[in-house]
Nucleic acid binder design. Structure first.
Lengths: 344, 344
DNA sequence: TTGAAAGCGCTAACAC
DNA sequence: GTGTTAGCGCTTTCAA
């Protein structure tokens, strides 16, 4: 592939502004040691000329690596695309570039993506999405990431329990308690859970929240009907089928994410189970179209885009002596998919 | 942003192999002019040491980066996140990195993103999403992109009319004709259109398809009720409000994308207009959750992820003498939001 | 077939 | 404050 014709360089801007390379560099980086008047002139000329720095040269020379690596399970999953939206937005404001990789909920592939990003010399890595309950499944990733951090790279995780990284912590357990409390308040006592694979820490945490709420209400959470399946729409369908078959007197289903909730609603529609009159359904996440389902989905709202924004903002601040933890908070959004428990 | 400490360099590999930098470079790049035996030794040592080239140095010194720039209007819009999913998938298979930027449906911002990607020396640019009817709105972008292509860069557009680029062409006009034909066959005669801004070429093309279908059925398409608004869910709400007010005898609304269709459904629910008994609604795109709305949305399916895959695959093939055009095809997906026209 | 040397465009010590 | 100069790690002429 031929090499793109060389474009405007910093030297051109410097020349036009009648200053040296260094001064131009400082002015554009906003560093001080330049008279404000001169700096302003350089910036103006740079803008007029449409100058854009070559990030490779910049990185090579030891400047800031202006790239953010974002690892998601799957970008076309609304949970991740909304988070990514937040990351890309902040990146755009700061003239950073975002590289997106899929881990596909596969620890080996995730490791590969991490290595790739590190080889690219990205300055920031953001990992979004559940980790694994068993630390051995991500031991290698952790090792690579530690080395990355030791070398000065910035790491932020969203929804993982990494001891040594800044983290955006979704209210998984608390949110699950809240939504379960909502169902209890509506009089439901026979509540079932549609869960993803329990080896995902997000699933385990949310499930713990449901169990805690039930225990708090004096209900035996150890025999809580639990249907595990994939953490997806189809998984939700399968889980609902099993719940209907094995626990026919269930009056409410808590799905541990909205994707599963949608599958649950779909299965209930197929079986002509009226929602919420015969069965209440609640989800988790509040993805953008949860309000547009019918019935509108009662769910726990996480501020997804905001989580993405925070993750990048944290990474861009100078590292703290101790890793930062930022809880997302959550909000119960009551729509039409939950209602009073049917009286018997 | 901090800078990761420098790692193993090519010079280290060269030294260990007892050859010059040049020879090592050649050996690893697989270029000839190196005795096979020497090349093999260099490669072995490089592997043993775990050497990974610094892509910034590599890009700066010569070739283009093995990076794909993907410009979308908004990554958290399902239309784009599904396309992006396809692109990221193919990229993952080929060890390429995908950089995502938002244009935000703003030509100026799009131009800025294009410049960034070019400055970044990406080898491939993929632009997804509607262009503008008025060529002047994207004249600058076109100029930059032409220069990029002249310099050897590969460009693929999804859903734009760029003469000189490989293109994935969604069946906008054809799909609109199909879905309008479906409504006509159901007996609808008073059909209204909820459209995005007409300056978007996608909107114009889809609208032309609706008009053509009506004309083909001998209906006066020049007085076709048309409500223009933003090409989003909220825009759909507003458009529906206006249609209900100004054309109360309408029996079917064609929304020119699914986002608007969802807004239309929402507005109709608010006004207690039964769908499809009193009003049929059709969308366009078939985003993943269109089936889960209630009623399930009748729409025109575009193979979004496949479009993303094709776009990158085309870009990675050697350029053809003439730009390639790949039509997506389309498929009418009939669900519950359309039904027979109410008899009067 | 191999190597020396000249950059690629930028930042950062170190002068002035 | 501002400029000079030496790299960052690699590819690529151009000689040998």
């Amino acid at each position: 592939m031929p090499r793109p014709r060389s474009r405007l360089r910093l030297a051109d801007v410097a020349e036009r502004a009648g200053v040296s390379l260094t001064t131009a560099s400082r002015a554009l980086a906003g560093r001080d040691g330049v008279r404000e008047e001169v700096a302003e002139r350089v910036r103006r000329i740079s803008r007029e000329l449409g100058y854009v720095a070559n990030p490779h040269a910049r990185t090579l020379a030891g400047g800031t690596a202006s790239t953010v690596g974002l690892i998601v399970h799957q970008i076309d999953d609304p949970y991740f695309s909304e988070i990514a939206g937040g990351v890309v937005q902040v990146a755009g404001e700061r003239d950073l570039i975002v590289q997106i990789c899929h881990s596909g909920r596969n620890p080996q592939n995730e490791l590969r993506q991490i290595r790739h990003l590190i080889a690219q010399r990205v300055g920031v890595i953001i990992i979004a999405g559940s980790g694994y309950v068993d630390p051995r499944m991500e031991a290698e990733s952790r090792a690579e990431l530690s080395a990355f951090q030791d070398a000065g790279g910035r790491l932020t995780v969203i929804g993982r329990h990494f001891l040594n990284a800044d983290a955006v912590r979704p209210d998984n357990k608390e949110g699950a308690e809240t939504v379960t409390g909502h169902l209890l308040a509506l009089g439901h006592r026979r509540i079932a859970v549609a869960a993803g694979e329990m080896l995902l820490s997000t699933v385990a945490d949310r499930f713990a929240g449901v169990a805690a709420a039930l225990a708090g209400a004096g209900l035996p959470s150890d025999e809580l009907p639990l249907a595990q399946a994939e953490f997806t729409r189809d998984g939700g369908r399968h889980a609902a089928e099993r719940i209907l078959r094995d626990h026919p007197d269930t009056t409410a289903i808590v799905a541990l994410n909205d994707a599963m909730a949608i599958g649950v609603l779909s299965a209930l529609r197929t079986h002509r189970v009226p929602v919420p009159h015969r069965m209440s359904v609640a989800g988790f996440d509040d993805v953008s179209f949860a309000a547009d389902l019918a019935p509108g989905l009662t769910t726990v709202r996480l501020p997804l885009a905001e989580m993405g924004r925070q993750a990048l903002s944290m990474a861009l601040r100078p590292p703290a002596s101790r890793p930062r933890r930022k809880s997302t908070g959550h909000e119960l959004v009551v729509r039409d998919s939950t209602g009073p428990a049917p009286s018997r």
